[in-house]
């Protein structure tokens, strides 16, 4: 699966409260209603500016903080094709894979807001069209690849009744 879109860059340690503030957790049960509040406390208006297919680029430890699955769900509902960061907080990383939001662990230092990026999710490679730089994602554990291939954790468990490590 190929994704191409415009980069939106954020800094280090973007926590799940910044992705979607706690006060909206009960505002609506539909993540699509919450996309306008995406990143609201650190970048007001981002939720209105972001376009389907855009790419979220961040610094280290993206998604730290709470276990709320609303964080990756709202990012996915906003149409963001992939989140790329040099490291992810582990609960967010698992949640993203489980719900089918693509995530890429890679160096993001050379990417600027507005750069056009293209990714081949299956191959784990990408390209910064603005700079010509190539991007290589760190490989996922086999179990996560299996979950992604099955279409998320629910489909994986329905199919195998357990976790397929190999």
């Amino acid at each position: 699966m190929n994704i191409a879109g415009r980069a939106h860059c954020f800094g280090d340690d973007i926590n799940t409260d910044y992705i979607i503030a706690s006060k909206y957790k009960t505002a609506s049960l539909d993540p699509r209603d919450l996309t306008r509040h995406l990143m609201e406390d650190i970048d007001p208006g981002f939720g209105q500016r972001v376009r389907p297919g855009d790419i979220l680029v961040a610094g280290k430890n993206f998604g730290c903080g709470s276990s709320r699955e609303g964080a990756p769900l709202v990012i996915k509902a906003a149409g963001i094709g992939v989140v790329v960061a040099p490291s992810f907080a582990r609960i967010f990383f698992r949640n993203a894979i489980n719900i089918g939001l693509p995530v890429f662990i890679c160096d993001t230092a050379g990417i600027s807001t507005g750069d056009d990026l293209a990714f081949d999710l299956e191959a784990g490679t990408g390209r910064n069209l603005a700079t010509g730089a190539t991007i290589q994602a760190a490989p996922l554990p086999k179990v996560m690849i299996n979950i992604v291939r099955d279409g998320g954790l629910a489909a994986h468990i329905r199919k195998h009744k357990t976790f397929q490590l190999a």
């Binding site: 699955e69 998320g152 490590l165």
Partner: peptide, 16 residues
């Protein structure tokens, strides 16, 4: 864990 991992655990009693 998040809700989906939890649901898988509720169904299977296990987690990877």
């Amino acid at each position: 864990v998040g809700s989906t991992d939890m649901a898988a655990a509720m169904a299977t009693g296990q987690l990877w």
